[in-house]
Computed example of a mutant assay.
Amino acid sequence: MRRGFFAECPLARLSHDFGQFGLLEASASPGLTAELDQHSAAVRDSIQRDGAAVSRRSLAHYLRGFMDGCLERGWHSSGAGYDWETLRLLAICQMAKEYGFVR
């Protein structure tokens, strides 16, 4: 197993349980791809604004904070369409794969 791949990592769980389906569909939709790119840029900016580099740890930390905020607001994925939160989660999955943090 390559360094940085952890079965219990929240990024791995999210990518496995949630990201695979949306990311496959995103490649067929230029509009969705553009939205994911914008969300990825916002996540990168947020991490870097805190003075950190994008790493498995910083992205997982961002994910935990984002999910805590979603839970506090009572959000849950209905599976019907791509709301703002779903797009942000898909962008996090995409980033985790692009950076090599998950397979």
Results as ranks from 00 to 15, higher is better:
residue 3 R to Q: 06
residue 4 G to F: 01
residue 4 G to T: 00
residue 6 F to K: 09
residue 7 A to N: 09
residue 8 E to N: 15
residue 9 C to V: 03
residue 9 C to Y: 06
residue 12 A to Y: 08
residue 12 A to C: 10
residue 12 A to M: 12
residue 14 L to I: 02
residue 14 L to Y: 01
residue 15 S to A: 11
residue 16 H to S: 10
residue 16 H to Y: 13
residue 16 H to D: 13
residue 17 D to T: 03
residue 17 D to F: 06
residue 18 F to Q: 00
residue 19 G to T: 04
residue 19 G to H: 05
residue 20 Q to I: 08
residue 21 F to A: 11
residue 22 G to N: 04
residue 22 G to A: 10
residue 24 L to A: 12
residue 24 L to C: 12
residue 24 L to K: 10
residue 24 L to I: 07
residue 24 L to Y: 13
residue 25 E to I: 09
residue 27 S to I: 14
residue 27 S to H: 13
residue 28 A to P: 03
residue 28 A to H: 14
residue 29 S to A: 15
residue 29 S to Y: 08
residue 30 P to R: 10
residue 31 G to M: 04
residue 32 L to T: 14
residue 35 E to P: 00
residue 35 E to R: 15
residue 36 L to P: 02
residue 36 L to A: 06
residue 36 L to E: 10
residue 38 Q to L: 12
residue 39 H to E: 15
residue 40 S to N: 05
residue 40 S to D: 02
residue 41 A to I: 00
residue 42 A to N: 07
residue 43 V to S: 02
residue 43 V to E: 00
residue 43 V to W: 01
residue 43 V to C: 01
residue 44 R to N: 00
residue 47 I to K: 05
residue 48 Q to H: 01
residue 48 Q to N: 11
residue 49 R to Q: 12
residue 50 D to T: 02
residue 51 G to M: 05
residue 51 G to T: 02
residue 51 G to V: 07
residue 52 A to T: 06
residue 52 A to M: 11
residue 53 A to I: 01
residue 53 A to G: 07
residue 54 V to W: 06
residue 56 R to K: 15
residue 59 L to P: 01
residue 60 A to H: 06
residue 61 H to D: 14
residue 63 L to R: 07
residue 63 L to C: 08
residue 66 F to E: 08
residue 68 D to I: 10
residue 69 G to T: 04
residue 70 C to Q: 15
residue 70 C to D: 01
residue 70 C to I: 00
residue 70 C to A: 15
residue 70 C to H: 03
residue 71 L to Q: 13
residue 71 L to F: 13
residue 71 L to V: 06
residue 72 E to K: 12
residue 72 E to H: 09
residue 72 E to L: 11
residue 73 R to L: 13
residue 74 G to Y: 05
residue 75 W to S: 06
residue 76 H to N: 11
residue 78 S to P: 08
residue 80 A to T: 11
residue 82 Y to W: 14
residue 82 Y to V: 01
residue 83 D to C: 09
residue 83 D to R: 13
residue 83 D to Y: 10
residue 83 D to M: 14
residue 83 D to G: 06
residue 84 W to V: 07
residue 85 E to P: 02
residue 85 E to C: 13
residue 86 T to I: 00
residue 86 T to V: 08
residue 87 L to S: 07
residue 87 L to F: 00
residue 88 R to N: 09
residue 89 L to N: 10
residue 89 L to Y: 03
residue 90 L to F: 09
residue 91 A to N: 03
residue 91 A to Y: 05
residue 92 I to P: 02
residue 92 I to V: 15
residue 93 C to G: 11
residue 93 C to Y: 01
residue 93 C to R: 01
residue 95 M to S: 02
residue 96 A to N: 09
residue 97 K to L: 06
residue 98 E to H: 08
residue 99 Y to I: 10
residue 99 Y to W: 14
residue 99 Y to H: 15
residue 100 G to E: 01
residue 101 F to I: 06
residue 101 F to W: 08
residue 102 V to L: 00
residue 103 R to E: 12
residue 103 R to S: 11
